[in-house]
Design a protein around this nucleic acid. Structure first.
Lengths: 242, 242
DNA sequence: TCAGTTAGAGTCAGGCTGACCCTTACTAAA
DNA sequence: TTTAGTAAGGGTCAGCCTGACTCTAACTGA
């Protein structure tokens, strides 16, 4: 983008440039099966290298914003969404991950609610892909998506992350849907219910979700710590469970 | 270090510079009590800002080395140690964490064995501190150390990290010592033994540690995956336990 | 009114946990 | 040589959590 030096040996003296990228996860019903599945938005490369391939949303860090702010801005600019959950994922900086000038990318991951995701911008250069079918991406972005998926699955087990996908009240079956979509396997409804109810982080309301086809399920409310507290800095981590 | 621009508004246009820092943990006996405790080396600042304060070992990223290589080089240069366990911790990049030019630091953490640590360099400008008594450090390094400690304690529970502190064979009591030093509390020897023995990652040898004052304990060998596999990229994570 | 489906409560056996006890095997002091 | 002390390492037991499974309640749509 700004090759200040003409030849290679000089260019190698140039400090690596810094970029922020964001892996944005949302749950949406699969258009074929109707099951909830994990999706993420990609932007099309409109310049070399990797022209026309899909890539993670990202861009440079502005002088006065924090890393987290830059990631939030990415999210906003590509999908018009405000982040509900945003956490640093990893810094990628191998010398050969980008062809021309060396780029170190600090990658964040975000979770958004399904109804938000439905509103998200989508045009010729922004498209949503099922997390397990992203195809070949630009740079090392396939690796990055893999790693983000792994982290998401791991974090689920800690307990509080799932609620970032949900609204202020929700049924236990909706929570189960989140877990099943992320983990990719079915869970026993009765046992799952028991586990959630024994958790401190959840509280029944007096309301029921009407309008379904069957017995109306009770609505619950999340009362635990802000899921974002899982991100740095947090010496407050609960270790009650395990 | 290299203020290419004279006034502030121009300087703000300059991209942030990138640095690699390393939090190096080692277990050493406390000189007072003799108990194993966590220690880490610091280097003295020999220039402004924070002249004469202690800081984490670190430095710039060289053009052809990976982030991980740069961290390994840090470790080598400050303590003359080769890394047995080295993993990325977090990227710190708030706009105000360093007074003059903005610096984004990608921080790694390392674990070294006690016998290695005993050999480590130590001079007027490199000193070891107990992890819970580092005093006031330069920049945001107190925060970073706190976070590294939290991560270490968390990782312990995953199972494989403890062996990075130990040699190729060890007694179960030595493993317990590692856990007690890191977690800062006593563990029941019998229950701890049972848990370790039921773990797949450990294998008894035919040897016993002679020369102690009491019944000679059996030596064990670690047979699990390389603890470094915990770091990126790793889709191979075992989720058998929990 | 009934068939179908989900919500939600409950049961039970097996595995893991912490607390605790006891024997074994060694050293050091008497 | 004996004895006291201590760590190694085997074991027991009650309580909790887990997965597999069953049963009833409550609703909708035909």
């Amino acid at each position: 983008m700004s090759p200040r030096y003409a030849n290679v040996s000089e260019r190698e003296q140039e400090p690596p440039s810094l970029a922020i990228s964001t892996v944005i996860f949302a749950l949406r019903p699969d258009p074929d099966t109707g099951n909830l599945t994990l999706w993420l938005p990609m932007v099309r490369r409109i310049r070399q290298p990797y022209l026309d391939l899909w890539a993670l949303p990202g861009g440079p860090l502005r002088p006065t914003e924090s890393l987290q702010d830059a990631a939030a801005r990415n999210l906003q600019e590509t999908t018009a969404l405000a982040p509900r959950y945003l956490e640093q994922l990893y810094a990628f900086g191998g010398p050969d991950r980008s062809p021309s000038p060396r780029v170190v990318s600090i990658v964040y991951w975000a979770l958004v609610q399904p109804d938000e995701a439905a509103l998200a911008r989508q045009d010729e250069n922004v498209a949503w892909f099922r997390a397990d079918r992203v195809g070949t991406l630009a740079f090392d972005h396939n690796q990055i998506v893999e790693y983000a998926l792994w982290r998401l699955r791991n974090k689920l087990e800690y307990g509080t992350v799932a609620y970032a996908f949900l609204g202020s009240t929700f049924t236990l079956a909706q929570v189960r849907d989140v877990y099943e979509a992320v983990l990719g396997r079915a869970l026993d409804p009765a046992n799952f219910r028991r586990q959630l109810q024994s958790s401190v982080h959840i509280e029944p309301t007096d309301e029921y979700l009407q309008g379904g086809r069957h017995r109306p399920p009770r609505l619950y409310r999340y009362t635990g710590p802000d899921p974002r507290e899982d991100s740095f800095p947090s010496q407050r981590r609960q270790t009650t469970e395990h």
